[in-house]
Amino acid sequence: MQLLTASLLSLLLLLTLPASAQFQFFDQMFNGGQQQQQQQQQAQNAPSDSVWYQQTYEAAHCDKYLCPHTLACVHFPHHCPCAWPAVEDKVEFGEGSMACVSKGGFKAGEAARKIELARKGLL
């Protein structure tokens, strides 16, 4: 009789453990995904606080000119790189300054051409 009871308990355990593991898998799969998504959303929604930038700017070491938008150390302000060169064109002005503007069109240099037209009052 004890052998039969032990066998039945063993069989019952063998049947319930995979079911329990299966529910844990689904629980983690769905609830874990929500937690990960919430963590990603929190990481994307950084507060609009300039303290981090100011601390990073002040901690940067540069004996020449420190570009304010990229924190690159260059010899002259107009040598600063654009932060997003894949989507920005760098336009240098005659007085040693520069600006990064969104690429404007399908041709290379289109943004610079439009700025020059605007400077001449034609745009």
Rank of each mutant, 00 (worst) to 15 (best):
C100H: 06
Q40Y: 12
N45L: 11
A118N: 02
F23C: 02
L122G: 00
L14Y: 08
T70I: 01
S7E: 05
W84F: 14
A19H: 05
Y65W: 06
E116K: 15
F26G: 03
K90N: 07
V74A: 05
L117V: 03
Y53F: 15
H69E: 07
A59N: 12
A19E: 08
Q34I: 12
F93N: 10
A83W: 00
V87T: 12
Q35K: 10
Q40D: 11
Q42T: 15
Q40G: 07
F30A: 03
G109K: 01
C80L: 01
D89K: 05
D49S: 14
A72I: 00
P68W: 04
A59T: 04
L11A: 13
Q41T: 06
P81V: 02
D49W: 09
Y53N: 15
K90Q: 10
L4K: 12
L8Q: 06
S10G: 15
G109A: 04
K120Y: 04
G104Y: 07
S7C: 06
K90I: 02
G32Q: 02
H79L: 03
S97V: 01
G32D: 00
Q2P: 03
Q42E: 14
A19K: 06
N45E: 14
F106M: 05
K114R: 14
M1W: 12
L8C: 03
T56D: 05
A46K: 14
Q24V: 04
L9P: 04
A99G: 13
T5Q: 13
Q38G: 04
M29H: 12
L4T: 08
S7R: 08
V87E: 14
W84Y: 15
S102L: 11
T16P: 00
T56I: 03
A43F: 08
T16I: 15
P47Q: 11
D27R: 09
T16L: 15
G32R: 04
F76D: 10
Q44E: 14
S50Y: 07
L9M: 04
K90P: 05
S10W: 14
F30D: 00
F106C: 02
P18Q: 06
V91P: 07
C80A: 05
E95S: 14
L8D: 07
L117H: 11
A6P: 07
Q55N: 15
H69S: 07
C100R: 06
A118S: 11
Q34R: 12
K114G: 10
V91D: 00
M1Q: 12
T5S: 13
A43C: 05
S48Q: 15
Q28S: 10
